[in-house]
Design a protein around this nucleic acid. Structure first.
Length: 264
DNA sequence: ATGGTTGTAGGACAA
């Protein structure tokens, strides 16, 4: 069977990143491209530009200004749907079912604000509740799925540039990391990125805009993930963080993550 | 210790 390539990328505004999406699509030719933080409602979504970039199927789930996800596909999509989380109506999830029956789920988990105390910071409380809801959903999942996106949690010590300095910084706090572990265990997912790069090695997908030289300082975090149902791992080949894209003109602060499968 | 940048907007605010 032919190879199947998937890329997930937090673009930080799809309209600000049209050229980069086109270039990435041309250079890597993914069958499926999952986007987060599109920051546009579905009427304003750049359908034409995405079709020009080669995607016959465009499944956006957006809202004005904030959040927003989309799945773009060169291969047939038999069904797509979005789930609501925490009853807020936020555009944080879109899923597609492929002809094989495999589903691809694209998530944008709340970032959680700055203060790591759910009592005083409602954004952090929302993030924890969102992760709890994901775990409950994962417990009911009885079919093979690939789950990708900006989960806004760096679970391992080597998923951040300094475990010591970030252990009380949102994205790497104990309650978030414990909840993300629980989501993964609830469906018996495999962390495909870590299947490719052992936990001894640092692995990042996001670098702040604020660094003078993001590559030199390398104060990154692994916030973006590719999780694969265990039975599908037999088809998983390789993974790459496309960090060169972080150096393109007008970059997103997230690098795309690419995964190759034998088939999907 | 603080500030550093970007995007959406057209002033803060979230990331």
């Amino acid at each position: 069977m032919g190879a199947f390539r998937l890329i997930t990328w937090n673009v930080n505004s799809v309209r600000a990143r049209l050229e980069q999406v086109a270039r990435l699509s041309h250079e890597q030719r993914p069958h499926i491209l999952c986007l987060q933080e599109t920051k546009v409602d579905d009427n304003g979504f750049p359908h034409k530009a995405m079709r020009a970039a080669g995607y016959r199927h465009v499944c956006p789930r957006g809202q004005r200004m904030h959040h927003g996800v989309a799945i773009l596909a060169r291969v047939p999509v038999v069904h797509s749907y979005s789930l609501d989380w925490c009853g807020k109506g936020d555009a944080r999830h879109i899923a597609v079912r492929l002809e094989s029956g495999v589903e691809v789920h694209c998530f944008y988990v709340p970032a959680g604000g700055d203060e790591p105390d759910p009592e005083t910071n409602p954004r952090f409380a929302h993030k924890l509740a969102f992760l709890d809801e994901m775990r409950a959903w994962a417990e009911t999942l009885d079919r093979p799925v690939v789950m990708v996106g900006d989960l806004n949690v760096a679970p391992l010590e080597t998923d951040v540039w300094s475990h010591k300095q970030l252990r009380n910084v949102i994205s790497h706090t104990p309650p978030e990391r414990a909840r993300l572990d629980a989501v993964m265990a609830a469906h018996d997912w495999v962390d495909a990125m870590r299947a490719a790069v052992p936990a001894e090695h640092k692995l990042f997908t996001w670098w702040s805009y604020r660094a003078r030289d993001w590559r030199a300082s390398n104060r990154g975090r692994r916030l973006d993930h590719i999780w694969v149902s265990r039975p599908l791992m037999a088809r998983f080949r390789t993974m790459r963080v496309l960090d060169d894209v972080r150096d393109w003109p007008r970059p997103s602060d997230h690098a795309p993550v690419l995964a190759d499968f034998d088939d999907l």
